[in-house]
Design a protein around this nucleic acid. Sequence first.
DNA 1: CTATAAGTGAGAATCACTATCGCTCGCGGG
DNA 2: CCCGCGAGCGATAGTGATTCTCACTTATAG
Lengths: 155, 155
Amino acid sequence: MKSEARSVGLPTTDWAAHAEQELKRAGHRSSAPRSAVVEVLGRQGCVLSAREIADELRADGRDVGIATVYRALELLDELHLVQRLDVGEGTVRYEPAHPSGEHHHHLVCDSCGRVSSFEDRDLERAIAHLAGRLDYQVGGHDVVLRGACPACSSA
Amino acid sequence: MKSEARSVGLPTTDWAAHAEQELKRAGHRSSAPRSAVVEVLGRQGCVLSAREIADELRADGRDVGIATVYRALELLDELHLVQRLDVGEGTVRYEPAHPSGEHHHHLVCDSCGRVSSFEDRDLERAIAHLAGRLDYQVGGHDVVLRGACPACSSA
DNA sequence: CTATAAGTGAGAATCACTATCGCTCGCGGG
DNA sequence: CCCGCGAGCGATAGTGATTCTCACTTATAG
């Protein structure tokens, strides 16, 4: 099978190291708070909100101001090192973006709100083909499927 | 050509009348403020935020409380008479949803923020096919392409 | 080692949206 | 046609996420 729902969480290999490197290359200093944010993102691998990141850091005993978390995420987003995901519940989530360009999309459960991911070559192909036909400079895309996750639909 | 970017704005035929009818059928009273919201949505046909709707109404001299606009939109959303679109700028936009099930997706310009729409049969087919293969009860989907609109990319 | 500007963080400000609550009015029964 | 009641309204307070401000800290070039 080419595509299937799975719980969020990619291999992550060394996204964190890559991100640090890109930050440096873009002329940014390294700092403990920002590195901590990068590390948490890399460790979790899945969609996280700014608050979740801050909470995670606090649990680790590394208090980082929420403003700093937002700033780090904004910066990472500018450098295309993270992917923003807004599923419409008022909070934006972020996840590491792999430089390979390989990416996935999301399934959002309407009842429990849980997010999972999938990837599908055919879908990517359809989008790429479509983008070529549009009179538009397409740079990226997001696909969100909504429905009931296995747990909720069986309950 | 099967698909092409165009400015937002569908024929609209008589979405407003249809919506009113559905509201009545669902056991809701008719009221001037809510009808006004429906009318604005139907008239514009394109993605509108709650605030934009309220402003439009105020310009028409029909002041409608912002809370009422939100309530009307929530109701319309529950009845699947509108489609929510969250392009990630902190405000949710709505547009009429046509009962035919026919729908379109959106292009968001990263520089000017303008939203336009497109439809593509192949994309729909890819998503439908994909949904069938996933272990997930897929009920709907959103696709957002990001990039530079013709105006911005030529500038 | 030192200057300096990037980066930090506490808290205020903003903004979209939701909850509250007394008042209004559409509408079915009389 | 009139009445009563509960759906609906709207001003306003509240909430929660995100951004702004500003004085303080610290990484790094020289």
